[in-house]
Design a binder for these strands. Structure first.
Lengths: 114, 114
DNA sequence: CGCTTATATAATAATACACTTATATATTGA
DNA sequence: TCAATATATAAGTGTATTATTATATAAGCG
């Protein structure tokens, strides 16, 4: 079966972007749940600026989009991205990360994001 | 359908490794043809040590193996690697690179590798 | 409006990366 | 055994990356 192909240079750029444990996990999580920065801060036990900077990189190549909801900015995977078919195939090889959000839920730290 | 999953940390490491235009192209080429260093030097118009260093990185994580054939060292994709299922899915999204080897062939620079 | 919370941005410092040049090793063949 | 070819390794260098700290912006609320 035929699969959408992406230029090798752009693909290398994408893989480098996803070649970071934090960003890769973010994308895996975002594939099933939208999230805001403060949730990622909790999940990754990382400073807020560090998280913002990772998110920005994902936004810059268009694989993540944002919506403001009150004081929060909700991030989501952009499933219209030219890269999404590849990302989707990639993510299938990763173990589910739902436990991370569940932990937040139990601590009452989950935001209204859905 | 169920797909083999790899630890998220190891996957990030793999993606970082493949997040380089040269290495990604190497892997795409190796998926259909074994090659030696001197061929890569021609294809990428890059110094021999630079090529050797890229190949070494691919070897170090076990996705590429080597066989000596005379004075040449022939590199091939290790299809037994735990990463291969993921790599295979990835490569499907890349355009064919056969033109690069064909060019070598025409210049009579293709080695006995098959 | 001023305080709090959420997020972004800028400057900086430590580390990692991908080349280069120089040199070493291994195989072939005269 | 010596020269040529193929490859590997080491050291050095410029650039990229990822974190930190400090500060700016933006929305919500008393």
């Amino acid at each position: 079966m035929k699969v959408s192909t992406v230029d090798i240079e752009k693909t290398a750029m994408l893989l480098k972007l996803l070649g970071d444990k934090t960003r890769l996990t973010m994308v895996k999580i975002l594939d099933s749940h939208d999230c805001c920065v403060c949730e990622f801060v909790e999940i990754f036990k990382m400073s807020q600026p560090a998280i913002s900077q990772h998110v920005r990189k994902l936004k810059n190549v268009g694989i993540v989009g944002e919506t403001r909801r009150g004081q929060w900015v909700i991030y989501s995977l952009n499933k219209q991205s030219e890269y999404y078919p590849l990302i989707q195939d990639l993510l299938e090889h990763l173990p589910n990360q739902d436990d991370k959000l569940q932990e937040l839920e139990e601590q009452g730290l989950r935001i209204s994001c859905e």
